[in-house]
Structures are given as structure tokens and as C-alpha cells.
Simulated scan of single mutants.
Amino acid sequence: MNPDDPRARRTRARLKAAVLDLATRQELGSITMSALAQHAEVNRATIYLHYPDVDALVTDAMEDAVTAVARAAALCPLDAPRDRPPAPLAELFDHVAANATLYERMLGGQGSARFAARMRERLTEELTGRFATGSRPAGFEDVPADVHAAFLAGALIGVITHWVCGGRRDAAAAQSFWRLFRPLVPG
């Protein structure tokens, strides 16, 4: 199978839409390949041509969201005032809030370990790349850039997970995270 074939791309798009739709209605662990095939209106064997399991499919389906979260986090000016979160951070939390049920399913106790790992990996990559261009706060020269980036990625994912899974989806989440994070930035 050629993954660039238009039919293969259409099938993957249908599968991604179906798994995301099902994930908003039920826990990931309860989504079966049979139910997914029925929802996507494809043969069950067709799914296996594209994805080995539901976790791989849902991770691929969320890739655009992961990229958006990673880029927003990397765009945050680390020297912004403590009393107001930077616009990219506020937009990131708005995006998560608009898709809270999906993020709760992905990051919760029965969520996708593969998705959480992919999110952490992408955030770390984006931040490491940013740090490599000189956009790293001063005062951390004694810490490798990739370790610094991994620390920040883990903190952000931890707060997002707590926010969507802990029932505290208030509008002040970005502000709360920024207040916690801002003291870690010298200046």
C-alpha cells in the first residue's frame, strides 16, 4: 500500500475522524477495532493496513493538535510579565479547553500513553529548537538545553492533565501556570 495514494489518505482521514468522534463519547480503552470499522464504514482489515492498534490511530489523529500545542508553547516569550500569561499560552489553554473532553480521554488514567509520550516529545523538540536559536532564558547555561526543554514540557503536560482530568477547567489556568512557571525564569 502506498501511503501517498489518494485513496489511502482518504481512508486514514476517515479513520482519524471516526476515532476522534468515538473518543469524545467513550474511554479510549473501550474503543474496539470492530466499532471503529463500523463507525468509519470500512472493513476491519482495512484499519490494520494503516494502524496496528487504536492507540497508534488516535496518536496519529491527534498529531495536528500536538503540533499546535508544541508550537504555541515554543512561541511564549519567557520574559513576559508575571501578572498576565503570554498570548500563545492563553491560546494554548483556550484550545485545550475547547477540546477538554478529548484531552481528558487522551491524558487521563485510561488514556493513551503513546499520545502523552508523543506530546512530551514534540514539546521537548520545539523548545530545544527554540533554545538552539538563542531564545533561552539566561541563568540556565549549566543545564543542557534538551534537559531544560524536557523539564518545561513535562511541567506543561502535567498542568494540562491536571486541569482537564481534575475538573478545574476555569479560565485562569493559563494565568496559574504562568505564575508557577515565571519564577523559574531568571530576570
Rank of each mutant, 00 (worst) to 15 (best):
Gly29Asn: 06
Ile31Thr: 08
Thr24Glu: 13
Arg179Phe: 14
Thr59Gln: 01
Leu75Ile: 01
Trp163Thr: 10
Ala149Lys: 08
Gln175Val: 00
Asp79Ile: 02
Pro137Arg: 10
Leu15Met: 11
Arg122Trp: 04
Leu180Pro: 02
Leu57His: 05
Ala149Ser: 11
Thr101Arg: 15
Gly139His: 04
Ala17Trp: 07
Ser112Ala: 09
Arg7Ile: 10
Val19Glu: 01
Tyr103Gln: 03
Leu36Ala: 07
Glu27Gly: 09
Leu15Val: 11
Met1Tyr: 12
Met1Ser: 14
Tyr103Asp: 00
Pro144Thr: 04
Asp83Met: 05
Arg84Gln: 14
Ala45Asp: 14
Asp55Leu: 00
Arg10Ser: 13
Pro137His: 13
Val159Pro: 01
Ser176Met: 02
Ile160Glu: 07
Glu41Asp: 15
Leu127Tyr: 01
Arg168Ala: 15
Arg14Thr: 05
Leu107Phe: 08
Asp53Arg: 07
Ala61Tyr: 03
Thr59Glu: 03
Pro52Trp: 02
Val96Cys: 01
Ala61Ser: 09
Ala113Pro: 01
Leu22Glu: 01
Thr24Lys: 13
Ala138Val: 03
His39Met: 06
Gln175Leu: 14
Ala116Asp: 03
Ala56Gln: 12
Glu121Gln: 14
Arg14Met: 15
Arg9Gln: 15
Gly154Glu: 14
Asp64Thr: 10
Ala17Gly: 13
Trp163Pro: 03
Gln26Tyr: 04
Ala61Arg: 05
Arg82Asn: 05
Val164Ser: 08
Leu92Glu: 03
Arg169Asn: 05
Thr11Val: 09
Ala74Asp: 01
Arg136Tyr: 06
Leu107Gly: 01
Thr67Ser: 13
Ser176Asp: 08
Arg84His: 11
Ser112Lys: 02
Ala97Asn: 02
Met119Ser: 09
Ser176Ile: 03
